[in-house]
Design a protein around this nucleic acid. Structure first.
Length: 412
DNA sequence: TCTGGGGTCCTAGGACCC
DNA sequence: TCTGGGGTCCTAGGACCC
């Protein structure tokens, strides 16, 4: 049976959602991601702002210079997640095989749904209309025989379009496009290809695979396959809807101004550790690898990782590990721009429940569940570890956050 | 251009084991 | 003692995506 993949990509998603909450923004140059003077980058720009050269990933200050009259809006992740769920629900009516590839982008496997939804283009238009009706948001839609081609197609359909590539026409459709349009080809690969005189996808097809392999290794062979529109190898190869478990959970923070204040730095690491631990508990996951990320004033980035004897989801254990790494990695002088805390090598709760767990660790776990509950009701700032806060609630919740092997905390 | 925050995947080298 | 060929785990860095 002919495979039919649909890729759905929302148009200027964050901006469009903000317009629903504030209709006066409609038609104006709008930048989502932060205020004009802030450190940070553009998360999304309205089409009116794009006319001035503003685009996502651009520094906010640059955007403000290019388009001073733009309205700058802070992002609202909860709103975007809410709309993302609505979109998923609509897509699920068309096929059980749906995969959200990001908050504003999804793949739907429509293979074999012709009797239900009609031929590809009709199905596509029905989907497009259903999304618009349910969310009042525009999207663009690509239909093709592979995930890769469907994704490139939805991009070509923008804005607010539906496009179908007939089976057999994949390579011909891709050939005139810039190599940068191939997912996975970024700035570096584009530059490397340019040096070899390769600019368009069609140029790739003309080259011997041995040539590509000699310059790019395995990646070169994958590239040749992509130029033909194949999903073979790598992420695109996985079946649609086979959502895999998270592999890492992380939080990072860029300071408004670089700082070499050890107390501020370690307080921030503690806060980030708490956020990571909270999410681990929400997902019933345990992290065995803890990683620190440092970025200095020159934008030099270093990472330091350690693997624990036992996977954990406890604030204090993560904070202790990451602060240990930090004290070894930082010279105490260099101003720091960014700190990050990562949990990796994640394990499910099952299999982790080990009988050897110390009773006091089990009590701590219970304590943290209660802490999460309070945080969910009253906000993250309501309760915190010793390093970040000094109030009675924390004292009663647990003392001695770093020195776990010490005396057991008594009750709460 | 003065560069966020959340992720994924890949490579490469060293340790360690058989 | 100057020495092979995996396999796996761990760490560090980098490209890329939205």
């Amino acid at each position: 049976m002919q495979r039919l993949v649909c890729h759905v990509d929302m148009d200027a998603f964050f901006v469009s959602v903000e317009e629903l909450f504030d209709p006066t923004l409609k038609g104006k140059p709008v930048v989502v991601g932060g205020q004009a003077g802030q450190r940070g980058v553009v998360a999304a720009a309205s089409y009116a702002a794009r006319k001035y050269g503003v685009h996502s990933a651009m520094p906010l200050r640059t955007a403000a210079r290019l388009c001073p009259q733009a309205t700058f809006v802070d992002g609202h992740p909860a709103r975007y997640r809410e709309y993302s769920k609505k979109i998923f629900a609509v897509l699920n009516r068309f096929s059980p095989l749906v995969e959200m590839a990001s908050i504003d982008e999804a793949y739907v496997d429509l293979t074999g749904t012709e009797r239900l939804h009609g031929p590809p283009l009709r199905a596509g238009h029905a989907l497009h209309e259903a999304i618009c009706k349910a969310t009042s948001l525009n999207c663009s839609l690509g239909l093709a025989s592979s995930r890769l081609v469907a994704k490139v197609t939805s991009d070509q359909a923008k804005p607010n379009g539906v496009l179908y590539i007939l089976p057999g026409q994949e390579a011909r459709f891709l050939a005139p496009l810039d190599v940068r349009k191939i997912p996975g080809v970024g700035r570096k690969t584009e530059a490397a290809l340019r040096r070899l005189g390769i600019r368009y996808v069609g140029d790739l097809g003309k080259l011997a695979e041995s040539f590509l392999a000699s310059h790019f290794g395995r990646w070169g062979l994958a590239l040749a396959g992509k130029a033909r529109g194949e999903d073979a190898g790598g992420w695109f190869d996985s079946p649609i809807g086979s959502h895999e478990a998270a592999k890492s959970i992380s939080h990072e923070h860029t300071f408004g101004e670089d700082t070499a204040d050890a107390v501020q730095l370690e307080t921030t690491l503690t806060k980030l550790s708490e956020m990571v631990a909270k999410r681990l508990r929400e997902h019933r996951l345990y992290a065995r690898t803890i990683q620190l990320k440092l970025r200095d004033e020159d934008f030099e980035t270093t990472t330091r990782a350690c693997t624990l004897d036992h996977a954990t989801q406890l604030d204090a254990q993560i904070a202790a590990a990451v602060i240990g790494l930090f004290r070894k990695a930082w010279n105490g002088k260099t101003p720091i721009r960014l700190l990050g805390v990562y949990g990796g090598s994640l394990q499910q709760e099952e299999g982790q429940m080990n009988l050897l767990e110390e009773p006091r660790t089990a009590r701590l776990r219970q304590t943290f569940r209660s802490v999460d509950h309070i945080r969910n009701r009253f906000g993250d700032a309501s309760i915190s570890l010793a390093k970040t806060l000094n109030n009675g609630i924390r004292e009663r919740v647990h003392e001695n956050p770093y020195d776990l092997p010490g005396k057991a905390p008594e009750g709460k």
